[in-house]
Design a protein around this nucleic acid. Structure first.
Length: 316
DNA sequence: TAGGCCATCTGGTCCT
DNA sequence: AGGACCAGATGGCCTA
């Protein structure tokens, strides 16, 4: 029993060294592992520093690979290795989240306070690329209803409302954007005034009202996406310039190259047939199909557009 | 209170 | 051997 306590002692030390972020659950699982170790190996914990495997003549032989005895030295190495691995994993996930944050910043709407969830960020990014490709290939108007529909497809209703709200804030918010562009990218001063957005044409957003100075409104000006200097301008305050390819995986003939990958998510929520012709969805919905096919994500696009179309926030 | 989202730990697998 | 990556498990926080 004293061995058990000493073993738990170093685990406590290891656990407490991790920025106080550990929870009872992790402790429990570690304890589970540890207690199983202790049952099998606690007779070798005391005092032994060598790692030679010893045959225990008393115990019945077990099949399978021999378990190495958990000496103090081995346990210490295990602990160090585990702590380092945890730190690396944390760092890796932070890097992933930073990348996701950078992605949020170049989305059509960006809010510091109302951050899109990870999955919604990815969905909106997918839609954004898709919508912009439509602008390029077919000259689709960025101020049209179709553009809004493309942006919102497959998004949850709160996110759809947020996007729709961003796109209908009207010309007065373009002034805000210029400040916001600087402020949220470079952490300079925020505009002193506040414009509270109340969606005129939509049901009340589940997120409540939105303070416009927290929104990064990025109207779908295609220039800002294809012009590398603009991309760097957008990103260079927080991250090194992106040196990779600046264009999405788009074939010149008009379709995304990753059809299947995208479809697995797409076909759960709406028809994507016109852009992913290889996907057999069985229906006849074009990309103009509304969300009625998926009741949960049904959004009043028409209502959004009603007010949206009265503004010309994308005109230059 | 249930469900969504998130951060973290963990063990397994693959690669260098 | 060690690091990167991944997926499962777990618990906290928040909101409807």
């Amino acid at each position: 029993m004293s061995e058990m306590i000493s073993v738990h002692g170093w685990m406590e030390e290891a656990l407490s060294s991790q920025d106080e972020m550990n929870e009872a659950g992790q402790r429990e699982s570690t304890y589970d592992m540890l207690s199983s170790m202790s049952h099998e190996e606690n007779d070798s914990i005391d005092g032994e520093e060598d790692e030679e495997e010893e045959e225990d003549g008393e115990k019945p032989k077990k099949r399978g690979p021999k378990k190495k005895k958990m000496t103090k030295a081995r346990m210490e190495r295990f602990r160090v290795r585990r702590v380092k691995a945890n730190a690396r994993e944390r760092s890796r996930m932070h890097g992933l989240n930073d990348a996701l944050d950078n992605l949020r910043r170049v989305m059509p709407c960006y809010s510091k306070t109302q951050k899109l969830s990870k999955i919604e960020t990815l969905r909106l990014a997918r839609n954004y690329i898709w919508a912009l490709s439509e602008v390029l290939e077919r000259g689709q108007a960025t101020e049209g209803k179709g553009f809004l529909e493309m942006l919102c497809k497959g998004l949850s209703q709160p996110t759809s409302n947020l996007v729709a709200g961003c796109l209908q804030l009207g010309p007065q918010t373009m002034f805000l954007e210029k400040h916001e562009e600087k402020s949220h990218m470079c952490e300079s001063t925020l505009p002193s005034h506040t414009y509270t957005y109340q969606s005129p044409g939509l049901p009340s957003p589940p997120y409540g009202s939105i303070e416009a100075h927290h929104l990064h409104l990025k109207p779908p000006s295609f220039k800002s996406v294809v012009d590398p200097s603009m991309v760097n301008h957008t990103l260079n305050c927080t991250t090194p310039p992106y040196e990779g390819a600046l264009t999405p995986p788009l074939s010149i003939t008009g379709n995304f190259t990753l059809k299947q990958d995208v479809s697995s998510d797409m076909d759960k929520s709406y028809a994507f047939r016109s852009h992913y012709p290889s996907i057999g969805l069985g229906g006849t919905h074009g990309h103009g199909a509304h969300f009625q096919t998926v009741p949960r994500y049904e959004i009043p696009i028409d209502m959004a557009y009603e007010s949206y179309q009265h503004h010309t926030i994308f005109s230059e």
